[in-house]
Structures are given as C-alpha cells and as structure tokens.
C-alpha cells in the first residue's frame, strides 16, 4: 500500500513523534511512503538549528535520520517555512537573511506537492494537534 503522510504540528507536539513512529511502522510492514509533507508548525521538524533539551527526544534529528536512511521524498511547505524562518541557502540569500537552517534531505516546495501526494497514494494520513 502507498502512503502519503502529512504532518502539521511542531516537533515538541506528541503528534510529531506519533507520525514518525507510524512512518517507521509503515515501512517495517512492507508499505511504501510516496511522500512526507511538512506543513504549518511541522516545518520546524526540518530545521537543523533546533536544540532540544538533552533528556528529551530530538525529533528534528530523528526525522532527518529516518528520511535519509530510507531516501524518502520529504517536502516542506515553502510558504509555511519562510514565515517561520526555516530557510535553505537559496531562500536565505534571496531574502538577505544571515543564515540557513534547512538542508538535505529536505525540499522546500509548494502545497501542490501535498495535493499530488494525495493523488499518488492509496492513503493520506494526517498528524497534527496534540
């Protein structure tokens, strides 16, 4: 079965962790993830600048490892990211910001990518809220 997974919540929300555990279980069960889409506050999951307390889960780091390891298509909504200061090199340069905090394995792109993922997948599963 082909899954598209959309995440709407910040890294410190339990739903971000739930989404990751679900994604891991989906692949472990032999399913395919056609795309991960990070929207709204979930764009912070793709930031490489977050420093969570050492005794807490580092979810942005865990997502990065997961996406890289499985070579997944992980798209971050560009409009949601820019307004929250989550920028790659190109956008930091374009808007004259002093640094970038988003790199590989993430892609900044538009909401159309979520729509396309929903068309490609057998199931769209959304995670957000608490």
């Amino acid at each position: 079965m082909k899954f598209a997974i959309a995440l709407f919540s910040a890294p410190h929300a339990p739903s971000s962790r739930r989404a990751l555990r679900f994604a891991e279980a989906a692949l472990a069960s032999g399913h395919e993830i056609v795309r991960l889409f990070f929207y709204q506050d979930a764009v912070h999951n793709a930031s490489n600048a977050a420093v969570p307390p050492q005794d807490e889960l580092n979810l942005p780091a865990e997502w990065g490892v997961f996406v890289r390891h499985h070579r997944l298509d992980a798209v971050v909504c560009i409009a949601a990211a820019l307004r929250r200061g989550v920028l790659n090199e190109e956008e930091a340069r374009r808007y004259g910001r002093p640094s970038a905090n988003l790199g590989e394995p993430w892609d900044l792109s538009g909401l159309g990518q979520l729509h396309e993922a929903a068309q490609m997948a057998d199931r769209l599963v959304c995670f957000g809220g608490p």
Partner: peptide
C-alpha cells in the same frame, strides 16, 4: 493497537480522517 496495528487499520479502512 500498537503502531503496526495502526498501519494495518489504515489499510483496512478506505479513508483515514484526522480530527486535527
């Protein structure tokens, strides 16, 4: 259900509606 069970439920039902 555990996480593999969660995945299986998403396959069993035709749509998944999240109350975000």
């Amino acid at each position: 259900v555990n996480y593999p069970g969660f995945v299986e439920l998403c396959c069993r039902y035709e749509k998944v509606n999240s109350w975000l």
